[in-house]
Design a protein around this nucleic acid. Structure first.
Lengths: 337, 337
DNA sequence: TAATTTTGAGTTATCGGTAACACAATTAAT
DNA sequence: ATTAATTGTGTTACCGATAACTCAAAATTA
């Protein structure tokens, strides 16, 4: 491993002089600067960022924690966050909690021990409170992404879960559906609660009764509660449409339906939150409330960087980004038998 | 920032004793161990991993560099790599080069200055040679993923690009297509070269002529060469099917076709490499050669960890993982007019 | 020409840990 | 009871960088 001392020796100067050349600080004569530069290149010198961070107490690394790396919604966020971080010269440390509290904890520990300068944090749910409080305790700036956590005051970038849900359900109502099931994430997650609210609001605004037996709570990351679906389908008055609270749930639900020999949308309509951008470009199918994922990432990152770089702590900001209703093939007007 | 010295002082011991408690090394009486532990908890102590890495000359961080974070093929790789790294207790630093040489360079610099213990490297192309050589020069172990780089001897995990391509094209030939276009990645990328070879092989094995005017080279990440597509379609004897060399190219091609009012598969068939797992589960459409992405990641990571941990340098290994031909709606038997 | 300022370095201490060695107090062995 | 071994803990040096201070030589000013 080449260090500044190796460079210093070979160039016949002190380590401090090498450091000054690297950082363009202090006064250095053009002659020594050139000589040091040449030796650095000859020896393929790369500064040790850990040593530097240790003394500077700054890593110039930001962390992005997402909850599902195979979900295009989150990877698009990642792209946006990365682009924004790069623009400001920060390096980015990705983490993927897989909607798992324990993995999230591992990543928080890693973040803390790495002493990153800030975190863009998509929480797994309300219990992430503990992790965010840990960040606060250690004075690590963060911005909360996609899901609000009660008890945490911070900058936050959110979607319009309630309105988006209402729009989706009203679309279904508008094309004749009356029995609409909700397959939702855990009530421990703010977006799931709001989407539930939007679902109810759409019903009451349209004078429809709400049947709680049509509402199921599972995990956002995947749907595999076959018995719950079975119960829905065996219902004396079964749903004619399903609102899956996110794209991954829609995947699971449609898969399960197909295994039971049911076709979407012929036998049952399905709508959900979040788009599958690439795939839908190929073959538009799902009716969705599409959220501006890239903006989630880039705006969130901007807020984070502002917070890090603005000395006087400014007040918290809350951005709510609207979703767009995209009506496609998976929702079909109800044909009364 | 709490350090071992703070702990040491409050517990009335030396810093070294604290270090021993943290690492479970050396001999410590049960009494002091307890006392130190208690103070650590009271002060919410988190070890500074940079200080530790600096003295140990080991970071216990591995890096995964992928070329497109919004491509489900790569995110599935990431999931596999992450799981494998976690099993061995390594932390994972993701990087995303976006198929861009300059970004790849940035990440390599970051990898070098972070002194990670090893890299799982999906190169952007043959010119990545320079970056891999830099890793070699600095003795950073790495495993090459998905694309081979001429001039580099290393462990490598690949797909069966040639055979996969041949199977896809033979499928098209089998259902009557004779004029098959190839929309390929840059010839600077090994998989693109091999898929090209497979394409040619399928033709020659089946006694079909090859028309080079049906072959286009673009960038794997997205297709936006409208004029090239235009030329294809204006061809006196236009293609009846298109083989897009990866999933992202298929997206771009199908979008462009639709803008021109052409339907897949009615007007033209499209097949490609790499699946869109979630989306295809919802609505099977694309005929693909599906690669075992998760295995790419987990096996690659296993090779990397073995290489790092096995003292005597063992010989290089080359894993070639077969792809699976999944015939779906986007390829249709040719109906002669 | 003497006094002052500027320039171009070098020295030392420090960031937060750990390895290697040292050493007093017990405990065990002879 | 003396010697040897073990146990528990402290000291010092170092990992690779940088901040703060120092200082001789050169340049500038009076």
């Amino acid at each position: 491993m080449i260090t500044i001392y190796d460079i210093a020796e070979k160039a016949g100067v002190s380590a401090m002089t090498v450091s000054r050349v690297i950082n363009n600080t202090g006064r250095i004569s053009e002659a020594t600067r050139k000589r040091v530069r040449k030796v650095m290149e000859e020896l393929h010198y790369i500064p040790n960022s850990m040593a530097r961070s240790l003394v500077l107490q700054k890593t110039h690394i930001l962390s992005l924690l997402i909850t599902d790396i195979t979900n295009p919604f989150y990877t698009t966020i990642a792209r946006g966050a990365e682009d924004a971080a790069k623009r400001s010269g920060f390096r980015l440390l990705f983490g993927n909690s897989d909607e798992d509290y324990a993995k999230e904890k591992d990543y928080v520990d890693m973040i803390l021990s790495t002493r990153v300068d800030g975190v863009l944090f998509a929480p797994t749910g309300d219990h992430s409170l503990e992790h965010l409080q840990q960040l606060q305790k250690h004075n690590i700036p963060f911005v909360v992404l996609d899901r609000e956590v009660p008890g945490i005051e911070a900058d936050v970038v959110l979607g319009d879960s309630k309105e988006g849900a209402r729009k989706l359900v009203e679309h279904l109502i508008g094309i004749g559906h009356r029995r609409i099931a909700l397959i939702n994430g855990s009530q421990d997650v703010s977006t799931a609660r709001l989407r539930h609210l939007g679902y109810r609001e759409a019903h009451t605004l349209n004078g429809l009764p709400i049947d709680d037996s049509l509402i199921i709570h599972v995990n956002y990351r995947d749907f595999h509660d076959e018995s719950a679906l079975e119960a829905l389908l065996q219902h004396p008055s079964p749903p004619t449409a399903i609102f899956a609270a996110n794209n991954m749930l829609a995947v699971g639900v449609i898969k399960s339906l197909r295994q039971r020999g049911l076709q979407v949308p012929q036998d049952i309509s399905v709508v959900c939150f979040d788009d599958f951008v690439h795939a839908e470009a190929i073959n538009p199918f799902l009716t969705v409330a599409a959220q501006p994922a890239y903006q989630f990432g880039s705006l969130g990152m901007q807020l984070l960087i502002e917070r890090i770089e603005s000395e006087p702590a400014r007040e918290n900001r809350k951005l709510i980004l609207p979703s767009e209703l995209l009506i496609r093939a998976s929702s079909q007007a109800l044909v009364r038998a």
